[in-house]
Simulated scan of single mutants.
Amino acid sequence: MSRTLINRLSHARRPLLALAIVAAALGTAHAGYNVWTGEYTFTKDELQSAVDKRFPATLRYGELVSVRLSNPRLVLDEAGNRITTRVDAALSNTVIPSPPVNGSLALNSGVRYDATRRAVLLDNPTVQDVEVQGMSQYREQLNAIGAVVAQQLLKDYPLYTFKPEELRFNGKDVEPGAITVAPDGIRVQVNLR
């Protein structure tokens, strides 16, 4: 290769190198923000960590039933653009002492952005499934308990709250837009205001 051609190639790479350095600096300044796609991304592990903070929890229904919920496990539903939270449940009769009845609940939620709170929230949680050993005859009552659990525990629960500086780029305010659930996390599109 001629020296002139080598010099030209070297000069051509400088703008690319500068662009890569700027992109790296922006990427580290705003964790989870992808400058190429204009999206914040949150991994399944980050989402799981946020939901873990809500559990264990114990809820009482009237004076009869106590439900202890633990061990949340997230399932990301790309096709439905929803998040399912499976939790272990232990139901106890608070009037008559007896061992708890064990089972699980699956609570299905949408995801939305709340501008006032600057947060990505679980939205409109519903009961997807209730499994309790030996109590299939009480499915209707268990679903009613599951519906209350969904509303009390996960309605408007924040998965992530943006810091003010994360919603400002190059002197311009940005606002989260469409939220997409993927198998490995969620993506939040960023729009200029």
Rank of each mutant, 00 (worst) to 15 (best):
32 G>P: 03
86 R>F: 08
56 P>I: 03
34 N>H: 04
85 T>I: 14
124 N>A: 12
66 S>D: 05
141 Q>M: 12
17 L>R: 15
168 R>C: 08
94 T>A: 15
57 A>M: 05
4 T>H: 14
140 E>W: 06
36 W>K: 00
10 S>W: 03
189 Q>T: 14
180 T>R: 05
172 K>V: 10
12 A>T: 12
14 R>M: 13
76 L>E: 09
167 L>C: 02
172 K>D: 04
154 L>N: 07
166 E>V: 01
108 N>E: 08
70 S>G: 07
9 L>A: 14
40 Y>C: 00
176 P>V: 01
23 A>E: 11
84 T>I: 15
46 E>S: 11
131 E>M: 13
144 A>I: 04
40 Y>T: 00
106 A>Q: 09
162 F>K: 05
168 R>A: 05
90 A>D: 08
177 G>P: 07
61 Y>P: 02
169 F>G: 02
4 T>G: 07
77 D>M: 06
72 P>I: 03
40 Y>I: 00
68 R>S: 09
94 T>Y: 12
50 A>M: 04
94 T>C: 12
18 A>L: 14
89 A>M: 13
57 A>C: 03
109 S>K: 03
105 L>Y: 15
91 L>F: 15
123 D>P: 01
1 M>N: 15
160 Y>H: 15
119 A>L: 06
178 A>V: 02
80 G>D: 08
5 L>T: 11
117 R>V: 04
48 Q>D: 01
138 Y>T: 09
168 R>W: 03
70 S>P: 08
44 K>G: 07
175 E>T: 11
57 A>P: 01
170 N>D: 02
93 N>D: 14
125 P>I: 00
163 K>V: 01
60 R>N: 15
4 T>Y: 12
173 D>C: 00
160 Y>A: 10
11 H>D: 14
180 T>D: 06
41 T>C: 00
138 Y>P: 02
188 V>K: 06
72 P>R: 04
33 Y>R: 12
97 P>V: 10
30 H>F: 12
32 G>S: 10
37 T>R: 02
104 S>K: 10
133 Q>C: 03
27 G>E: 08
75 V>P: 04
38 G>N: 01
137 Q>P: 01
124 N>L: 10
61 Y>W: 09
143 N>I: 04
30 H>R: 05
38 G>R: 01
24 A>F: 09
146 G>F: 11
106 A>T: 02
111 V>G: 13
112 R>K: 13
